[in-house]
């Protein structure tokens, strides 16, 4: 596979309308993401940012009322979450779950092999796998003890986020959706996490950063910035928009949209 070229459409969302427990969270959202691009989706709390991430990854308890999402030409919404993952869609969780007793490394190896199987590559054995993980752990500045621990078991908030990015760098997704990956990180951890994300940037991949704060974008410079509020993209721009949002807040965007 991987004949994805710079500029190919990776994700195309049209008029996506989603409700959770009868409450409409997304209403008519449009977004196009191409290979080689980094998009930042910003917005006030409760705007639907996390819902968007979770819907794209395939969470079941959302109701799709209208719209489409196409991933590499396939109907994304028709695929179960594990199939999305195997096709190279990765969600970095805002709150990664702890699964004590299930070894971190074994999970990651299974995840990598599920992905490799999908794209017709041979499974990696334990030896090859450890070499890959050790390499990426160095990048993420994680120590050896991590290899022995349960999935996110007893991890600090920062460690959990690092672990998400570590998984991402090992899995090398075509589309990475990172949900509030910067929340709860101190400045050093933010740099490490950003390095991890930047290491993955390539003409054949795309990244969607969902974030509340501009500071992440100092380290991972986006090509596009979108404001998500009221369930849809109200405004799009370049990096300058993020800086303006930091200075002026979100209200002016909402007012502009209301006036239009």
């Amino acid at each position: 596979m991987s004949n994805i070229q710079h500029g190919d459409v990776v994700l195309d969302i049209r008029g996506l309308t989603v409700s959770v427990k009868g409450r409409k969270i997304l209403s008519g959202l449009d977004l196009t993401v191409r290979a080689g691009e980094v998009h930042a989706i910003m917005g006030p709390n409760g705007a639907g940012k996390s819902t968007l991430s979770q819907v794209l990854a395939g969470r079941a308890d959302y109701e799709i009322l209208a719209g489409t999402a196409t991933y590499l030409g396939e109907d994304l919404l028709a695929l179960p979450p594990e199939e999305r993952a195997r096709r190279g869609l990765f969600l970095g969780f805002q709150y990664p779950v702890e699964i004590p007793g299930v070894n971190n490394v074994y999970l990651l190896k299974a995840a990598l092999n599920a992905r490799r199987k999908q794209i017709g590559l041979e499974e990696v054995d334990a030896f090859e796998f450890l070499a890959i993980v050790r390499d990426k752990m160095k990048l993420m500045q994680m120590d050896e003890s991590f290899l022995k621990r349960g999935v996110n078991e007893g991890f600090s908030g920062g460690e959990k986020k690092r672990n998400e990015i570590l998984q991402m760098t090992v899995l090398e997704p075509t589309l990475a959706i990172l949900d509030e990956t910067d929340s709860g990180l101190d400045i050093d951890a933010l740099k490490v996490v950003s390095n991890g994300v930047n290491s993955l940037r390539s003409p054949a991949r795309a990244v969607v950063l969902v974030t509340h704060y501009q500071r992440l974008l100092d380290h991972i410079v986006p090509d596009f910035v979108h404001v998500l509020a009221g369930g849809r993209i109200l405004k799009s721009g370049d990096r300058g928009l993020a800086l303006e949002l930091e200075r002026r807040g979100y209200d002016w965007v909402l007012e502009e949209a209301n006036a239009a």
């Binding site: 990854a57 079941a60 179960p80 594990e82 993952a85 779950v97 995840a111 999908q118 998984q167």
Partner: peptide, 16 residues
């Protein structure tokens, strides 16, 4: 089983 945990594992490509 905890649905959040289940979803997390599925998003890593594990079968159900």
């Amino acid at each position: 089983l905890d649905e959040h945990m289940l979803f997390y594992l599925l998003t890593r490509g594990l079968d159900r």
